[in-house]
């Protein structure tokens, strides 16, 4: 009886460890990924904005509603991607090489709160 309980506890620990391992694979700072889409579908609809030489490039893009945008910090200093109007959302600090993803549901004006003259804009296709 005692062995059976121990086996159940051990099995439970193994299951929890397995679930944690499955969910820990992506170290990107993701936000708002569409949950129902397969990975290859998501990647097809992804637009990349590079952060380099103290600028977002391209600074202005047009995307479909629901499209995912990924910002990649390729600069030598940390940056962030932050809502310009009310600072409602932010990527947090992105060190060199780090990325931030966001599903775009509406037009966005954003900036780097660390270097406020760095600005970008996303508009939706009509």
């Amino acid at each position: 009886m005692k062995n059976l309980r121990l086996n159940r506890v051990f099995s439970l620990i193994l299951m929890i460890a397995f679930c944690m391992a499955c969910s820990a694979g992506d170290d990107n700072l993701d936000q708002g990924m569409a949950p129902d889409k397969k990975q290859d579908e998501v990647e097809k609809e992804m637009t990349t904005i590079t952060i380099k030489n103290m600028a977002f490039s391209p600074a202005k893009i047009t995307v479909e509603k629901g499209e995912t945008v990924v910002w990649v910090n390729e600069d030598v200093v940390p940056h962030d991607v932050t809502d310009f109007i009310n600072q409602e959302w932010t990527s947090g600090t992105l060190s060199t090489g780090q990325t931030f993803k966001k599903v775009i549901e509406k037009e966005l004006d954003y900036f780097c709160s660390i270097h406020p003259t760095m600005k970008g804009n996303i508009v939706l296709k009509k």
Binding site: N53, D75, V76
Partner: peptide, 8 residues
């Protein structure tokens, strides 16, 4: 790459 950072 550092030059534009300094200018900023």
């Amino acid at each position: 790459q550092v030059a534009p950072v300094l200018e900023h």
